[in-house]
Amino acid sequence: MDDATYQGFDLDAETALALLDWQLEMGVDVPVMDAPVDRFDLPARNAPTAAPPPPVLKLSGGDDLAPRVAEAEALARSAGSLDALAAAQEAFDGIELKKGARNFCFADGNPKARVLILGEAPGDEEDRQGRPFVGRAGQLLDRMFAAIGLARDAVDAERAIYIVNVLTWRPPGNRDPSPDEIAVSLPFLRRHIELAAPDLIVLMGNIPCQAALEKRGILRLRGQWVQAFGRPALPMAHPAYLLRNPAAKREAWGDLLSLAERLDSLSV
């Protein structure tokens, strides 16, 4: 059988990548095991099982990671304003991504907004402009929130959104951030949220859920209110996923309505 053909269907590289993205969004992380597993060899019904350990962000940075995280924490704590935090984070040299990125992407929108949108990391267009969510996914994000009366350029904090990413520097090739990169960015992100003090947070995609909840699998998590950084948070599918899978926009609309309802309830 030709390598590019599977069960009678042509499978080009773009389609294969789209299928892989879909599987990752669905939470598939082990497509093939190293050894066969006998699914019929089940443990005894009454056998005691240990409680699963709490999720831990696995790091691989070695001995130099702890000092970099400690430096980031000290810099973040010392920042008494968003401007001071932005200056401290931009000057921080403890993340290698800084060397290959063109621009620092701190935030966009109204910092007094009640809703903070937490994205993943800058893409190519964001890296060019130094602002988060300005590419195709950002344009869709603007339309999504405009549908419930919210906008990044709104002066009124009641109708505004504030947009932040887990990472402020673009990963090469738009790859996912590594656990180490998230670890050194988290102190700044926590302080950013403390200073902005939003009422609600939207966790837009897998990376924000990993950073805030230490969980992935956005299609399982979306639509369920959780606590993140001490505030109510709503996981939602990333607009880039919605662009690839238009049928998922219906669920995203339901999530937006849930967000609008929660905002209204907090205003009473």
Rank of each mutant, 00 (worst) to 15 (best):
88 A>R: 12
88 A>T: 02
89 Q>D: 09
90 E>V: 00
92 F>I: 07
93 D>K: 12
93 D>Y: 00
93 D>N: 12
94 G>Y: 11
96 E>C: 00
96 E>H: 12
96 E>S: 13
96 E>I: 01
96 E>D: 14
97 L>V: 08
97 L>W: 06
98 K>T: 03
98 K>S: 01
98 K>F: 02
99 K>D: 15
99 K>S: 15
100 G>P: 00
100 G>M: 02
100 G>R: 08
101 A>S: 15
101 A>D: 01
102 R>E: 13
102 R>G: 11
102 R>Y: 00
103 N>H: 13
103 N>I: 02
103 N>C: 09
105 C>Q: 04
105 C>T: 13
105 C>H: 02
106 F>Q: 05
107 A>E: 13
108 D>H: 10
108 D>F: 00
109 G>S: 02
110 N>Y: 13
110 N>V: 03
111 P>Q: 12
112 K>G: 05
113 A>Q: 10
114 R>I: 05
114 R>L: 15
114 R>V: 05
115 V>Q: 06
115 V>S: 03
116 L>T: 13
116 L>C: 14
116 L>S: 09
117 I>A: 00
117 I>P: 03
118 L>I: 13
119 G>A: 07
119 G>K: 08
120 E>Q: 15
121 A>E: 05
121 A>K: 08
121 A>Q: 10
122 P>Y: 01
122 P>R: 00
122 P>D: 01
122 P>A: 07
123 G>L: 04
123 G>E: 06
124 D>N: 11
125 E>V: 14
125 E>N: 06
126 E>L: 09
127 D>R: 04
127 D>L: 03
128 R>D: 13
128 R>W: 09
128 R>M: 07
128 R>G: 00
129 Q>T: 14
129 Q>D: 13
130 G>F: 03
132 P>E: 06
132 P>Q: 08
132 P>C: 02
132 P>I: 06
133 F>S: 13
133 F>Y: 12
133 F>L: 13
134 V>R: 11
134 V>Y: 03
134 V>M: 04
134 V>S: 05
135 G>L: 07
135 G>E: 03
136 R>S: 13
136 R>F: 12
137 A>T: 15
137 A>C: 10
137 A>K: 06
138 G>P: 02
138 G>I: 05
139 Q>M: 14
139 Q>D: 08
139 Q>A: 14
139 Q>T: 14
139 Q>F: 07
140 L>R: 11
140 L>E: 12
140 L>C: 05
